[in-house]
Nucleic acid binder design. Structure first.
Lengths: 287, 287
DNA sequence: GCATTCTATGAAAATAAATTTCTTGGGGTA
DNA sequence: TACCCCAAGAAATTTATTTTCATAGAATGC
């Protein structure tokens, strides 16, 4: 049953007052979720029985059931984590992945230390140059994303995914540089080494990793992400979504930390894209 | 208020029966969400007033409020989309990004055509070689992720983010090759050209893009993703989360389509990682 | 064009649900 | 031993929800 769909009345089965009710509910879900049937009826200018009937038409058992469904729906539909079945159908695979991704985002939001993130953003914004290190598929993606976001904001940044290269880059880093590292496990020895090199050179370091890990201990600013890992080895880790969101938030804070610089850089990029393509600026800032 | 936290009774404020209630609720959220106070009381072996008091202690207004909060919580906390305030605090930025990411995942799940995905998975699994094209930051990330997931499953795959290169690769593609393309906007002319080249050579093509776009029209199998774009130019598009999830699902389906090959490949990679590092196999399959 | 049927709706009644008040009994404390 | 406090339930009360019944208007059939 899909309340979201039902409320939009695509089949046109609602009566006049029911349409009014649906509109009211969609306009102010909070109110509907928190009020009694009498309040809702009064505000909609209908009688309580009409509300009950409305709920039934939507496929709910009654008003309380409706409220529960509504609460679920508006807070993003997501099944509870089910034990994994070995014979998963494609639909189950899809649901499982989406569920876990949403869960990872939820957990991220719960445990994210905004102050640390803000501190990191200001450090990045003030940097003359940023070296971003992350190896293996996942962390590589993360630092590449950081690169992809920050260069648009006028930051000078290089992302590198090669251990030996990282080492040389760290050893060569001069004043004004900030080193950024990503490690999902927190046990990337190569990254730890780079961070130590940076520390020797009094270069500030930021990492996104598990707290209380070797990588975390080697850095100045730690964006801690502690999520349980799944067990299905076929399944890519849902932790990536959490990391990606953290990077997105970070990039935003960097943008806000120096709005004018960010705007200027974005504008140039956009102009270039628009003038070189078909003039359709829906492309915005990259495919 | 954080019901999740409250239910775990970290402050040890629960009485004996309240602990029992909390356990019952956590064990079977579905039951709690769908039953009346009498049912819940009976199943927990307590009186209804005890349940009411329990709800109050959890910070809820009463039993109905408790049910609503519970429904929200278990379906992943997520605020309704708020209009964006120009003077966003870091916390608001974080919430907004997480919200939109979850929303993108929700929408993806609602509109995803599993059969198409499954078809694409079988095509990829049967391919002798896969060329994956995606340019600019976002699509580049997507095809790199595809590469990152599929090579682990024993697929022969190359990801390329360079237009000219893609063109040459398409022109040189031989029988047994499958071309995969990603474009968020669906208007990547270079990609369209590659797809046309492939079509001339009777090479099957799969794209992940907006439906009814030039890219979609040029491909054999279309994984359609149609999400509204945000307007904040500072903000990276939340669509990325949806694409990423689609790729994850796709990779899973490829793995399940040929379990033994996938397992074999994964096992070799894992052995290599474990033997070369500190023997800690928590690293699993890449940082 | 009138009668009939159907549908939407509300009023009132009935039921069910939730909460408050009052009470009890067990554990601790002076 | 007497007192107090707290957890917990029974009964009473209040509140919320649903059902039943009645009505008016719209649609349909003859």
């Amino acid at each position: 049953m899909d309340l979201f769909h039902a409320l939009s009345d695509e089949d046109g089965k609602f009566s006049g007052l029911e349409k009014k009710l649906a509109q009211l509910v969609l306009d102010d879900v909070d109110f509907a979720v928190n009020s009694s049937i009498l309040d809702l009826a009064e505000r909609a200018g209908v009688s309580p029985p009409t509300v009950t009937r409305f709920c039934r038409r939507l496929g709910c058992q009654g008003y309380s059931d409706f409220k529960v469904q509504l609460a679920k729906m508006t807070y993003v539909g997501l099944r509870y984590l089910k034990p994994e079945t070995p014979t998963a159908t494609p639909a189950e695979v899809a649901e499982d992945i989406v569920t876990k991704a949403q869960n990872a985002l939820f957990q991220l939001h719960r445990q994210l230390d905004i102050d640390v993130l803000d501190k990191a953003a200001h450090l990045l914004r003030g940097a003359e140059f940023i070296q971003a290190f992350g190896a293996s598929g996942n962390s590589a993606m993360i630092v590449n994303e950081l690169h992809n976001r920050l260069f648009r904001l006028g930051c000078r940044i290089n992302a590198s995914n090669d251990h030996n290269m990282n080492m040389m880059l760290s050893a060569a880093a001069g004043p004004g540089t900030v080193v950024f590292g990503s490690s999902f496990t927190g046990r990337d020895q190569g990254l730890v080494h780079c961070l130590e090199l940076a520390r020797q050179r009094v270069i500030p370091t930021i990492v996104i990793t598990q707290s209380n890990s070797p990588v975390a201990r080697a850095a100045d600013v730690v964006i801690a992400i502690d999520l349980p890992e799944g067990k299905n080895i076929f399944r890519p880790t849902s932790t990536r979504y959490a990391y990606l969101a953290a990077i997105d938030i970070l990039a935003n804070l960097v943008a806000y930390a120096d709005r004018s610089r960010a705007l200027k850089a974005l504008r140039s990029i956009k102009e270039e894209l628009v003038s070189r393509r078909d003039g359709d600026d829906r492309q915005l800032l990259g495919d």
